[in-house]
Amino acid sequence: MNKPFILTAEGVTKSFDGFKAINDLNFYLDEGELRTIIGPNGAGKSTFLDLITGRTRPDEGQIEFKDTPVTKKSEYQIYRMGIGRKFQTPSVYSDHTVYENILLGLKGSRGVWSAIFGKVTPAQNERIFQVLETINLKDKAQVRAGALAHGQKQWLEIGMLIAQDPELMLVDEPAAGMTDEETARTGELLLSLAGKHTIIVSEHEMVFGRQLASKVTVLHQGSVLCEGSLDEIQNDERVIEVYLGRKKKHEAIHAEH
């Protein structure tokens, strides 16, 4: 008997003004898997994550998380099902302190009343510092998030994700704008989270290289071009065509016009 998938997307199509950002996409993810989605700009990576998290809705097709459709639900309902997301550009509360950012991300009640009358318990406080330790921002706890360096903001947002403790983590281009050293440490962080969580990492290029050693899905023009290990991907004719031949093709299109 097969293990059920944690996330399935079948026949998903989404177009913006006639442009098909996602075109008949089929995607299956096992529980506990670490998956990398790569694709050139405009391949539909972020749109796909938008569709999973309820930011936009598909025109056709079905996305199911643990056999429950997510396509009719709003962002916060999907969040409560256990899907967390880190955005491509770091999206933290810049006027709040680092500590408060994690506090607001922390798993727990999301209601108005508990927000007014609830107190931060010692256990929650401890958990916040634990997360801060993981993302290496413990000594910055009382610093305004807006004052952090770019890479630290990326980590802070990953920290909010860790604090949320979702079953499925969607991490959109976590290494964007990071130095090589920061990238390597982000890779380590993601690896340490794998196993405890199911993770999708989207990437523009293979910045983590072999570090993540995950299964790779290549997106191209809104659908899955191929899937497999890094070695299989790198030797795939179509992938080489998309990544290396893109420039040539681009010129050809321009020549036609």
Partner: peptide, 26 residues
């Protein structure tokens, strides 16, 4: 209160609030 922090979070980044599981409308 934590409500106040969420209130200011809605002001600064409503999307982040939604994607952190808060029903910002409430």
């Amino acid at each position: 209160t934590r409500f106040g922090k969420i209130q200011r979070a809605v002001r600064d980044s409503e999307n982040r609030v939604l994607f952190s599981g808060y029903a910002a409308a409430n």
